[in-house]
């Protein structure tokens, strides 16, 4: 058995070990590298930057805790950008498993950094079941769908919601999703009510949404942790995504190296086997 044939039969635990080391190493010795900005991320940033100060925006937490590493840096960066521009932020989620809690945690933490007050500068509407009904219902009245906020306070007791009835008072929506809810924000809210929407999504979902950006239905797109890192770089506030880029870089390079080695083994080892057979 030659080297390539042995490589073909390498125990998968060695692969797991290499992946583990590649993930852990950059967190022990951080590798911070500049990321290039894609046009889609730049478009999103430019749109938010062009919003008038004190605009009312929605920040939607449509992701599960499983994709927190990719999606949360996007929501944190967006919340920072919104609060920096003195925007009034309304958060909500169409995800029952942890969506409202993540919204609460992110906005509260960022709001404290900017000295923002709950009920005046930001509100967490929480979760309501059946996102198609929720998205279309808010077009007529947000209060009819969310009579109270996430902690049970009636909306009419929250000063921010005094002037917000439906989508007509919303200047921009930033949807961060790891599932198909982003499609419904396009088909119901953008197409039906003309509200500009930006999207942040996982790297695996991002290719689908280039079509929506091209059609103007999304004003911009952040794809995966790289997209989040681009946005952190645009707002000049380094966060978890920039730190995570080191680990992601090494793992991507490792996978590419494994694919090359695997293919070399496949061809060279295969030729060796055929020669051996003769």
């Amino acid at each position: 058995m030659n080297f390539w044939q042995r490589m073909q039969q390498m125990d998968r635990r060695w692969v797991y070990l290499m992946v583990g080391i590649s993930v852990i190493f950059p967190f022990i010795l951080p590798i911070t590298l500049p990321v290039s900005i894609t046009p889609e991320a730049q478009m999103l940033y430019d749109h938010i930057e062009a919003l008038p100060d004190s605009s009312t925006v929605m920040l939607v937490f449509d992701y599960y805790p499983s994709t927190i590493a990719e999606c949360e840096p996007m929501t944190i960066a967006a919340a920072r950008h919104f609060f920096e521009k003195d925007c009034r932020v309304i958060t909500l989620s169409n995800i029952p498993l942890g969506g409202p809690t993540m919204a609460e945690q992110v906005t509260r933490t960022v709001a404290e950094q900017y000295g923002k007050e709950y009920g005046v500068d930001y509100v967490n509407l929480g979760y309501k079941a059946n996102y198609v009904a929720v998205l279309s219902g808010m077009g007529q009245s947000i209060e009819s769908i969310f009579p109270t906020d996430n902690s049970g306070t009636p909306l009419d007791e929250l000063p921010l919601m005094d002037s917000v009835v439906n989508y007509e008072q919303i200047d921009f929506i930033f949807e961060v999703a790891d599932n198909a809810t982003a499609d419904y924000w396009v088909s119901i809210v953008n197409a039906g009510y003309g509200v500009p929407i930006g999207c942040g999504t996982t790297a695996v979902s991002a290719p689908k949404y280039y079509a929506f950006v091209d059609a103007g239905q999304f004003v911009g797109l952040l794809g995966g942790m790289k997209g989040a890192a681009e946005y952190e770089q645009l707002i000049e506030q380094e966060g978890d995504a920039m730190v995570g880029m080191g680990a992601q870089s090494l793992v991507h390079l490792l996978i590419i190296a494994l694919v090359i080695v695997g293919n070399l083994g496949f061809f060279v080892g295969g030729i060796g086997r055929r020669k051996g057979a003769k």
């Binding site: 590298l33 500049p34 290039s36 991507h252 590419i256």
Partner: peptide
């Protein structure tokens, strides 16, 4: 392979 390279700073 090239898309994976492009999506990370080291590959870029």
């Amino acid at each position: 392979t090239v898309i994976m390279l492009w999506r990370v700073p080291m590959g870029e």
